[in-house]
Write a protein that binds this DNA or RNA. Structure first.
Length: 602
RNA sequence: GGGGGUGUAGCUCAAUUGGUUAGAGCGCUGCCCUGUCACGGCAGAGGUUACGGGUUCGAGCCCCGCCACUCCCGCCA
């Protein structure tokens, strides 16, 4: 049964050798008196020939009954294919194996969907693919993704080892810290009524490791968040988690740029230019309307606050009078936007609090717009100049508070880019990767509904040193030592320099975030205590490993780079989980269920 | 929690907008076929139109409900 070669290995120089191949029946061409069977393994495929003149009739008969995806082991002599019968589509296409022995290791029933035809399979309903993930993973594209993931994981470990990092595993049964994302809870059998939580990230352990003197820590860490899912979010996911002592922000930039450079070279043989561009949070919002800008798209936002301060168009001048901004973007070539597309954009703007969406279509040499009649010649000239308006352009406006105006147009910009790409008017090369750092985030944001400040990143993020006195006097102005790394509009990861002084950490928890002292003690007491016994200055970062792989593989869904992902409702369709448990299990855990009974249908 | 999309043969999709017995390609089954590689030829089987109601002379199509998948908003310290 042992194989001598894999199925993408044989070449003309192997001709004459007797070999054994093992794998799956990829395809079968039964010509009646002669049968061709392509054997496939994870490396590729090889054509085998069953010729009755070389074979016992019984073996030939068995070959004719083989079905797709049966598992076989065949032995025979390799030979160069007859002239004119080479198959250039496969690597082993110049040779074939003349089978003398066939062992059927397992038959396969008819499959629920084909795995041998990439065009068909790529369109198969994802529900079905997830139900039979083991078949989905046989597809060459999925094998490639698994392989790339493994390669990148190894490259990551090698890189960090070279840089003097220790890989340390941290617990999955952790303590609930309900400030952040909703957690998965694990009931304790031994401690009735008490729960573990699965970690949203190893944040606190990695900081504790710095107190422990590890100095350089990394881990490919499993993280868990019980929030609603998206194409780029799963309830359990993997982070490249990093923490270092005695560093400043620049050290993290250098380290991560080196890592990504290594990964891109290993995975795609692409040399990433470093250092990455650096944008402040404010500049990212001003120019792109989002804190994770996709700089490949062009169409930057332009500010017209001054130009429209005294405008006759009251929507603009009114917004400015209230301290707001007027911003615009030029969707080049989108003047032919349909009514439906304009409406979709307007709906999108409204969902961000806009009252409407002002626009100008530049068609046939004139500006078609319900608002252009309010504009003076000076205002029109300013628009033409700063937006470089040309025939065929679509100009879109937002007038609102600064952040809202930016975010509305930021969202519209992405919508326009989608439309332009679908129309072929915006073409982005597949091998283009625009990396950048977003820095200088505000440390705190204000929650209007709950009337309190919350951490923009997390409560362990260090303020810029000279801003520490402002924590209690003017929180809005405090800058955080936080950074995000972004590629092509995807937030790949983020981190910060941490607070390492127990008194500053206590101030943030109790006075700024207004967490009662007894709660702080119960939830974070061990950390504050640890900080008192000699905590080095430290900082770190976490990269979304799944998003990283999705970017490398050119897919928008991280499900394509996770072997066994869950659906949008967190179900595993293959194992049918989550699922009910036995009453005894619940009794052991001291749990009573209160699940409303479903109303009978009808 | 909210909004959009999808659900018809094993798979991918049609069904002239409410009208005869729901079709096609691939796959599957049987027979034929010695140089195929998307093999070819002939024949055949295969449907609770996701599910439950309703309107109608008549529903795959319209209405109500419900389930699953998917995308987005909220959410994701």
């Amino acid at each position: 049964m042992k194989r001598t070669h894999h199925c993408s290995e044989l070449r003309t120089e192997h001709a004459g050798q007797t070999v054994t191949l093992s794998g799956w029946v990829h395809s079968r061409r039964d010509l009646g008196g002669l049968i061709f069977i392509d054997i496939r393994d994870r490396e590729g495929r090889t054509q085998t020939v069953f010729d009755p003149s070389d074979l016992p009739p019984e073996t030939f008969e068995r070959a004719s009954t083989l079905r797709s995806e049966a598992v076989v082991s065949v032995s025979g002599k390799v030979r160069k294919r007859p002239d004119g019968t080479d198959n250039l589509k496969i690597a082993s296409g110049q040779v074939e194996v003349m089978v003398t022995n066939l062992e059927v290791l397992n038959q396969a029933e008819v499959l629920p969907f084909p795995v041998d035809d990439p065009e068909v399979t790529a369109k198969v309903n994802e529900e079905l693919r997830l139900q039979h993930r083991y078949l989905d993973l046989r597809r060459p594209e999925m094998v490639r993704n698994l392989r790339l993931r493994s390669k990148v994981a190894t490259a990551t470990r090698v890189y960090f080892d070279e840089q003097g990092f220790l890989e340390v595993e941290t617990p999955l049964l952790f303590k609930s810290t309900p400030e952040g994302a909703r957690e998965f809870l694990v009931p304790s059998r031994v401690h009735p009524g008490q729960f573990y939580a699965l970690p949203q990230s190893p944040q606190q352990f990695k900081q504790i490791l710095m107190v422990a003197g590890v100095e350089r820590y990394f881990q490919l860490a499993k993280c868990f968040r019980d929030e609603d899912l998206r194409a780029d979010r799963q309830p359990e996911f993997t982070q490249v988690d990093v923490e270092m002592s005695f560093i400043e922000r620049q050290d993290i930039y250098d380290l991560i740029e080196g890592l990504l450079k290594r990964i891109w070279k290993t995975a795609l043989d692409i040399d990433l230019p470093t250092p990455f561009q650096r944008l402040s949070f404010e500049e990212a919002l001003n120019r792109f309307g989002i804190d994770k800008p996709d700089t490949r798209l062009g169409m930057e936002l332009v500010d017209f606050t001054e130009e429209f301060r005294a405008s006759k168009f009251k929507v603009f001048s009114g917004a400015v009078a209230n301290g707001g901004h007027v911003k615009a973007l030029n969707a080049r070539g989108l003047a032919d936007a349909t009514q439906g597309q304009i409406e979709a954009m307007t709906e999108c703007a409204k969902s961000f609090g806009a009252k409407g969406l002002a626009f100008i279509k530049v068609e046939g040499g004139e500006w078609k717009s319900p608002i252009v009649k309010f504009f003076t010649e000076e205002e029109k000239a300013a628009l033409t100049k700063k937006l470089d308006i040309q025939e065929g352009d679509l100009i879109l406006f937002a007038a609102d508070e600064w952040l809202a105006a930016c975010e509305i147009l930021g969202r519209i910009r992405l919508y326009c880019a989608d439309v332009l790409q679908a129309q072929g008017k915006l073409v982005i090369p597949k091998d283009r990767f625009d990396f950048l750092w977003v820095v200088d985030f505000p440390l705190l944001s204000f929650d209007k509904e709950q009337n309190r400040w919350y951490s923009s990143h997390h409560p362990f993020t260090a303020p810029v040193a000279e801003d520490i006195p402002l924590l209690t006097t003017d929180p809005r102005k405090v800058r955080g030592q936080h950074y995000d790394v972004v590629v092509n509009g995807v937030e790949l990861g983020g981190g910060s320099i941490r607070i390492h002084q127990p008194d500053v950490q206590k101030t943030v928890f109790e006075q700024v975030l207004q967490i009662p002292p007894d709660l702080v003690q119960a939830r974070f007491g061990y950390m504050l205590e640890a900080f008192r016994y000699g905590c080095p200055p430290h900082g770190g970062i976490a990269l979304g490993f799944d998003r990283l792989l999705a970017t490398l593989c050119g897919t928008s869904s991280i499900r394509d780079v996770i072997a066994f992902p869950k659906t949008a409702k967190g179900a595993d369709l293959m194992t049918d989980s989550p699922a009910p448990v036995e009453p005894k299990q619940l009794r052991d855990l001291h749990i009573d269920l209160k699940v409303p009974k479903k109303e009978p249908q009808g």
